[in-house]
Amino acid sequence: MSHAAAADAHHTSTGLPTWKIGFWTFIGSESLFFGTLISTYMVYKGRSLVGPYPPDVFSIPLTTLSTFVLLMSSLLMVLALNAVQRGDRRGSILWLFGTAFFGAIFLGCQAYEFTHFYHVGLTLQTNLFGSSFFILTGFHGAHVMVGIVWLLILWVMALRGQLGPQDALKVEIAGLYWHFVDVVWIAIFTLVYLLQ
């Protein structure tokens, strides 16, 4: 690895990009944040005193669809990174936008779901299920939102031709964030929706 360090004008002990180490550490930290949110949901599962309860409101087909969309957005994200690393400008533009677009579809499903729940009488204040469900999935949705804005900024840079192979690390780190948000959803899908 020392050859990589030597190639760089500056010294690093591992030859690894500093930003990437920092960002992985941040993702580790985020795991504890979502871990606590998921714990709270699990602890309060089945303890609500009044309805609606999860089986009354959940629509597994809709959530399966949005889960699939988010999974596929992760595929588009790795394709975007590949395109940027190869210097494929058209591919970069297409896949970056595609990832953000799929993320937006996911958020749209979530907005639809939240509105639907609201209309059948489930709000933040209704019961323990409402509080722990909306706060857990809401924080996840907020993360998706941040990711979409981030991807769109990269997309604009790609459109302007400011995103060449030398900027691959920027896309890689955005990708790490995006995939992390995806794996959090993989856990939420099972623990919240499937294990009712």
């Binding site: 990589a4 190639a7 760089d8 030859g15 690894l16 990009p17 500093t18 930003w19 990437k20 920092g22 960002f23 941040f26 690393q85 192979p165 030398q166 900027d167 691959a168 690390l169 920027k170 890689e172 780190i173």
Partner: peptide
């Protein structure tokens, strides 16, 4: 977090 400018992606 934003990837640095001068920190190029030689390693990546």
């Amino acid at each position: 977090f934003e990837p640095g400018r001068a920190e190029t992606t030689k390693v990546a």
